[in-house]
Nucleic acid binder design. Structure first.
Lengths: 361, 361
DNA sequence: TTGTACGCGTTATCAG
DNA sequence: CTGATAACGCGTACAA
């Protein structure tokens, strides 16, 4: 592959001049520039970003680590992050951890070796082992938590208000007269799992309903647990009249369970869930849910990270919190609230989505 | 961030010795090794892969370019590619092109600047403009086409048998007595789009049915076109009794259209589609489809690419072709063929899936 | 405006 | 087995 030196020779100039025309940092006279541009085209020259990175100590790469790309929640987040990265001239490198802490540590290590300029993390559930991330931050690789944050760790994050989201959902169920509301939670090792459970509890209490342990089932945010736990609870003698599931993929499992045991929704049991699955429009019944601003989560996360990398943030950790949005559909009401507005939804994608910024120093 | 030099100083050895203990290329005595390992731990040393890449002229990065990560077909492909990459110690960098050739060219250029060792491409529809890929291959960056190949370009590829897949699907519809079968094709600018259309035509002809132009609608593999074209054809005076849609996301659009105009499936119209959507289990009716081995497509593509990079392939272009699998469900039969085997499916994920290898030199 | 020389952190070669 | 040193391709003083 052609080097800057070869371009210089072919154009009869010094390498400095080639560098200057490519980067545009210093002006170059038109005749030289033309010769150089021609040489670049003829030799199909692509500046060696590796050498450049070594020299300027900056790779213009961002590392994104997520639990599982096949969870439909993440591709949208990635799109947001990628768009923001591209706008700011960064390349996004994504890696899956399979929800395993061991893999996360390994992936972060690899990414650090590759000298990514910063890390975007949707954490895997782990027993408080955040050393690999704190070390990275300490040695100059900024870290931004995405969606799943660890409180009090002193790092930037962008999350959503999980307590409120869950609370909204459960309130809605209560308003429709439900008293026996079961919850399938996510992993309670994750703050996000605990927060959603809390929203459920708060909503029940404020309505004067009591929180019954038997109606709280701990899942792990994966499809199989939704399937297994829904089956378990719906086969009980005394079946709850409503079910609140704490993320989208567990809901897919739950729907499967409903189907197999012949329980109808919403006639036999109402269903509300966290996450609006991107292809949920094709489901019957359509699901009442609290939708997260996934695209923005990624977009804002990457923007925050790059601002941090480029020293545009002076103070302590920035904790962005986005708000979720309740979408009421037939899985709780029997009527479909928005079936005729699907394509309209898409335009809202890049919207701001209501940001609360709380920065503490 | 700590450098090899700092480790050497702290351990009182030369940098060469540090390099040797890290890489394991040359033996190092135990006492020295222990001191070095200790220093590495204390300083949280991560070898600078950028400097290494510059020296060894190999980044251990693979570039993957796909049209749209939010198309559920691709995340599985990515997983396969990522798993293969990890096993062979490569880092996978993925970028979206939004189905736009201009973006694809840009992305490939960026990836080449970053000196990825090879490129995995699911091409965007373009007017025969493959120069950016041929240039890459010519200057030492191997390219393998994934899923969407350009025939006769002289590059490696891994695809599936699209003609047969479409043929199987349409044959199945014919067997169920359908004579008026409409097709929503993908972009006919893409070989893959033309192949699927061909399978449809062949199946009709072999059954003695005639191919009617009015039943062929050209989409673009995106959801909106499925919606629009399904709506158009189902509102005609003489409505076809069956519809064959050429990929998963267009089917989502079509389902939406059915719903809006109150046409029931399969009672009013039978539906068969390319791609088994990962969350199709939650649909009603469940869809008859020809499923592609997505995970393997990625896995085998990355493996092929790495073999090429490492010089393990001597001859000319390798063209791997995987076989797809017909899955008959209620959208064509009214009965659900496999509703009780969903979780069993997953174990088949890493299977070989029937490979035909055709290498021409 | 243009050219020269040095260093970024590694690996590889060669001498001890 | 261990150590010194020359590249790798580029950016950037500094000199012209």
């Amino acid at each position: 592959m052609a080097t800057i030196k070869e371009i210089a020779e072919r154009a009869n100039v010094s390498i400095a001049t080639v560098s200057n025309t490519v980067s545009g940092k210093r002006p170059v006279s038109t005749p030289l520039k033309d010769r150089i541009l021609a040489a670049i085209r003829e030799l199909d020259y692509h500046p060696n970003h590796v050498a450049r990175s070594l020299k300027v100590k900056q790779t213009n790469m961002l590392g994104m680590v997520i639990p599982d790309i096949t969870n439909p929640f993440y591709p949208e987040v990635m799109r947001g992050a990628e768009d923001a990265s591209r706008e700011r001239k960064y390349l996004l490198v994504t890696a899956n951890t399979d929800e395993r802490m061991e893999r996360e540590q390994n992936v972060v290590s690899v990414l650090r070796s590759h000298r990514v300029d910063g890390l975007l993390i949707a954490a895997a559930p782990g027993r408080g082992t955040m050393d690999h991330l704190q070390n990275a931050a300490k040695t100059g690789t900024p870290v931004v938590f995405l969606d799943r944050a660890t409180p009090g760790i002193g790092l930037d994050s962008v999350t959503i208000d999980n307590v409120k989201g869950a609370q909204d959902c459960v309130r809605h169920l209560i308003r429709f007269g439900h008293k026996d509301i079961a919850i399938i939670t996510g992993s309670l090792k994750l703050e996000i799992g605990r927060e959603r459970l809390k929203g459920y509890q708060v909503a029940l209490k404020e309505a004067g309903l009591k929180v019954r342990r038997s109606l709280i089932l701990e899942g792990d945010f994966r499809e199989e647990s939704g399937y297994r736990l829904a089956k378990e609870i719906l086969l009980r003698q005394h079946r709850p009249t409503a079910l609140f599931v704490c993320n989208g993929v567990m809901t897919l499992g739950a729907l499967q369970a409903l189907d197999e045991i012949g329980v109808r929704c919403p006639q036999d049991v109402a269903l509300a869930t966290f996450d609006d699955l991107p292809y949920g429009r094709a489901f019957h019944p359509r699901l009442t849910c609290v939708a997260q601003p996934t695209y923005e989560l990624g977009y804002k996360g990457a923007t925050l990270l790059i601002d941090r990398i480029e020293g545009k943030l002076s103070g302590g950790p920035v904790e962005l919190q986005l708000t979720s949005e309740m979408r009421i559909r037939e899985s709780t009401t029997g009527r479909d609230g928005d079936r005729h507005h699907f394509y309209g939804d898409k335009s809202a994608r890049k919207n701001d989505g209501g940001v609360k910024k709380s920065s503490r120093n």
